[in-house]
Design a protein around this nucleic acid. Structure first.
Length: 815
RNA sequence: GCUCCUUUAGCCCAAUGGCAGAGGCAGACGACUUAAAAUCGUCACAGUGUGGGUUCGAGUCCCACAAGGAGCACCA
């Protein structure tokens, strides 16, 4: 405990850290531990430097949850690791001419030290680092398992391409259509790349979101639903003059088939290329010019919403199967090559985009709805022969039936979700464990030859140049084919780092294992994650990929659940003066400065108290100095206790005991519902009550004061571990307030014999008085009518209704 | 354009459909002090973005609108 009668933040921090290292209160692997299990996980950080304010918020809030369950008597597994592969390390290395490895591991050490000082309740025996071969070996193993199941495959398709950096970019590396590194306009380029077949799981990924309702933020659920974007419709076959095979189009509006006046095909699709193959030179030239222009156009132009429609008529015709009509075929960039079949029927009378196109190129517009105002064509059909008069739904159904009978159409669904492009032409990532052999083709690296370790970066030019830097590591690239033994080459691409983070929560069960990705039995005991905590920035990609992996692992029989994160808490961001903190904006608040000025506990408490955790915190609006003041106040309250440990609380001051136990009743539900700010407010209330009791005529010797101070120390341990531990010592206890346990509220202390009854007339408060809680409805009603204020409010009005909710309320409604 | 969130005191934020205020910041006043800081105490301040509706009763439920924010975006 503090020797001075004064709250010394720095001294307290230095005192307890080594003692906790000894005690290991958050070791989740104690032999014979009988406590029920709880898996609490914070999204692991990228080691891009020291911890910043965002980390401070995330880990403060994650710690509240983890420490709460520990106080509730659970064996909490709260592990930490580093998501340490990726571009920032590589870019830093290029800039400084260093090995990405050194930069990465230096940062990890710095963050580890900062986390320890920040008193994170991590289990330090379960650390993982994704750039360790012992970790990424299992990325490779999983890749090969996916490959076996046809879930990992290579295909040639257009990808984001930065012409200046000469590299493929992930969607997330394209910012407003510009390369995040060099700000040049990103274009598309066709390349052969590795993909994971997420689309095979699209239905399950969408449908299973329903089961997360209530436990995941609605925002995330709707973002995921949006992203997956399932639509129901039909595939319809249009035969083509001069082509044997018909063209299949996808539509959600079979009911507008009679309004289809032309067909549009994605200009960059293989189908379009094929259709113009033997066209007249003039058509072909026009097509080629347009295709070239489209390829050069970048996302900036594509994003412009008011962009005029463009396209080329390719002098070919399709037959509309519903009426045998011949319609012209156009190519355009407004039809996407990789959605549906890359071809649509255009119904300009009932589709805004088609209408715009038709107007631009003077194509016929034929309405199929009776009411000219009915753009959506919900009402009665016209121009639709035997279907005339039918409403949208019936028309859709019957037209599809007709097509089905002729074998020209069938029900279909489509997803906005695309397969996951996982290959990167970069050095700092998990090598893809495939060997390319001229004779045998793609050959998986045999499991007993894993891991395929990254070669040293020494001598490699890491600068992006369109192909992976690993290609230059000739000793590494050239290997014997595992199948035929002839000279072959390793795949030189590395995996997207989202692969690493898609299953790391399972690796924590045995981070050091060299024989398995994770132990199946331990996964049964510990997983899925009971509580996941992290930023909303990962609402789509990371969470979707982790859900995908979980479903695949479930299908592989390795786990018995199919959702990885039972509950999810998304904390907001820390801002300064209304905007995200950044060096260039000049509003950067340094965590180390804040910790130095106010102490770890005050910063953690401020994060929890600022407001609901999912809201952004504006650092200009909060008061770490105020938090520090409260901590000192709480600490002094403990110092004011003069009774001995173990004193019988029952004889203590009744009023304070009641405050203590109503705190104990309210606190748990508040934390479990993530109302940390309210929980802190309740602690402040209790400290105020102690102060009042001590300074009043009861004094510090009353047992109720000790009881209240001990409860404050335990409750405070969730937010301010150093102060709480010191208070615990001041109160005469052995170190270990983190596991002291939250006492149960004594309900008998909370029973009221009287309450205040509210009397309303027409919903307005007119009188209130104290009544027994046992009062009958009849008695309360009578008392209400005796009130002078009530009589006056009623006046001459006639009474229409009297609502009595004894013992609290009477509402008299007048006419 | 589509989807979603938010709006309560000068500020950050509470309030199982039942007295609008739990807590804090900033503020005023007082006690302690030679003084200041720290500490302790007391106090003031809104009727819940706007307009409707449901209800005995609405900050809370429903509808429309406004403002601010987030995500997706030519997905046929």
């Amino acid at each position: 405990m503090s020797t001075e009668h004064e709250y010394d933040v720095q001294a307290i921090q230095e005192r307890w850290l080594p003692i906790w290292d000894e005690l290991k209160p958050f070791d989740s692997n104690k032999p014979g531990d009988e406590r029920p299990k709880k898996y609490v996980l914070d999204m692991f950080p990228y080691p891009s430097g020291d911890l910043h304010m965002g980390h401070a918020e995330a880990y403060a809030l994650g710690d509240v949850v983890a420490r709460y369950w520990a106080q509730k008597g659970f064996n909490v597994m709260h592990p930490i690791g580093w998501d340490s592969f990726g571009l920032p390390a590589e870019n830093a290395a290029i800039k400084r001419g260093l090995d990405p490895k050194g930069w990465t591991y230096d940062n990890i050490e710095q963050q580890r030290t900062s986390m320890r000082r920040y008193a994170c309740s991590f289990d330090w025996d379960r650390v993982l680092v994704t750039s360790d071969p012992i970790y990424y070996r299992w990325n490779q193993w999983l890749f090969l398992e996916f490959y076996k199941r046809g879930l990992a495959y290579r295909k040639n398709s257009p990808v984001n391409w930065c012409p200046s950096c000469q590299t493929v970019l992930a969607n997330e590396q394209v910012v407003q259509g510009l390369c995040e590194r060099c700000d040049s306009a990103v274009t598309k380029k066709a390349l052969t790349q590795w993909y994971f077949k997420v689309t095979d799981y699209a239905d399950r990924l969408l449908d299973d979101l329903d089961g997360l309702e209530g436990n995941w933020p609605n925002k995330v659920l709707s973002m995921q639903r949006n992203w997956i974007g399932r639509s129901y419709g039909a595939e319809v076959q249009f035969s083509i003059a001069g082509r044997e095979e018909p063209i299949t189009i996808y539509t959600t509006r079979t009911d507008t088939l009679y309004g289809a006046t032309f067909m549009v095909i994605a200009v960059d699709s293989p189908l379009a290329a094929e259709l113009v193959e033997n066209s007249e030179a003039s058509v072909k030239a026009e097509f080629d010019a347009y295709l070239e222009k489209t390829k050069k156009s970048n996302d900036i132009e594509r994003l412009a919403t008011d962009r005029e429609k463009t396209g080329v008529f390719i002098d070919r015709y399709a037959i509309n199967p519903i009426n045998g009509e011949s319609i012209p075929i156009w190519v355009s960039d407004y039809v996407l090559a990789d959605y549906g079949t890359g071809a649509i029927m255009a119904c300009p009378a009932h589709d805004e985009r088609d209408l715009e196109f038709a107007e631009k190129f003077n194509l016929p517009i034929r309405p199929v709805a009776e009411d000219p105002e009915d753009f959506n064509a919900d009402g009665a059909r016209i121009n639709s022969h035997e279907f005339d008069g039918m409403l949208r739904e019936e028309a859709a159904e019957k037209m599809l039936k007709k097509l089905e009978d002729q074998g020209l159409g069938k029900k279909a669904k489509n997803f906005r979700l695309r397969d996951w492009l996982i290959s990167r032409q970069r050095y700092w990532g998990t090598p893809i464990p495939i060997i390319h052999c001229d004779g045998c083709g793609e050959v998986p690296v045999p499991a007993d030859q894993l891991p395929v370790e990254l070669p040293s970066a020494e001598g490699l030019d890491l600068k992006p140049k369109g192909t992976s830097p690993l290609g230059a590591a000739t000793d590494w690239v050239n290997v014997a084919c595992p199948s035929c033994g002839k000279p072959a080459k390793r795949d030189t691409d590395t995996m997207d780092t989202f692969v690493d983070s898609s299953w790391y929560f399972l690796r924590f069960l045995s981070p050091k294992s060299e024989t398995e990705a994770f132990p199946i039995q331990a996964a049964k005991n510990w997983a899925p994650v009971d509580q996941y905590v992290g930023g909303v920035t990962h609402a789509i990609l990371h969470l979707l990929y982790a859900r995908f992996f979980t479903k695949v692992l479930n299908d592989m029989g390795m786990i018995d659940f199919d959702e990885p994160f039972t509950r999810l808490l998304n904390q907001g961001m820390v801002q300064m003066n209304g905007s995200a903190m950044s060096k260039s904006r000049g509003n950067l608040v340094r965590l180390s400065d804040q910790l130095g000025e106010h102490g770890v506990d005050a910063i953690r408490l401020t994060m929890a108290f600022a407001g609901p955790p999912e809201d952004d915190i504006d650092w200009a609006d909060v008061s770490p100095a105020g938090s520090a003041k409260f901590l000192a106040r709480a600490w002094r309250a403990a110092n004011d206790v003069t009774s001995e440990t173990g004193v019988d609380f029952k004889t203590g001051n009744a009023e304070l005991r009641k405050a203590t136990h109503s705190f104990l009743r309210d606190f748990g539900p508040l934390i479990e519902n993530f109302k940390f700010n309210v929980g802190v407010a309740k602690l402040m209330e209790l400290v105020n009550a102690i102060r009042k009791t001590v300074d009043g005529n009861v004094g510090g010797s009353d047992p109720a004061v000790r009881e209240a101070a001990e409860v404050v120390a335990i409750g405070l341990s969730l937010f301010a571990p150093y102060t709480a531990e010191d208070m615990w010592a001041v109160l005469g206890h052995k170190p270990g307030v983190a596991l002291a346990g939250l006492p149960k509220a004594d309900e008998s202390l909370l029973v009221e014999s009287t309450t205040i009854a509210i009397i309303q007339v027409d919903g307005k408060l007119r009188d209130k008085f104290e009544v027994s809680v046992a009062i009958t409805a009849e008695e309360l009603r009578e008392k209400a009518f005796e009130s002078y204020n009530v009589k006056r409010a009623i006046g001459d009005s006639e009474i229409a209704n009297v609502i009595v909710r004894e013992p609290k309320l009477v509402n008299i409604a007048t006419r």
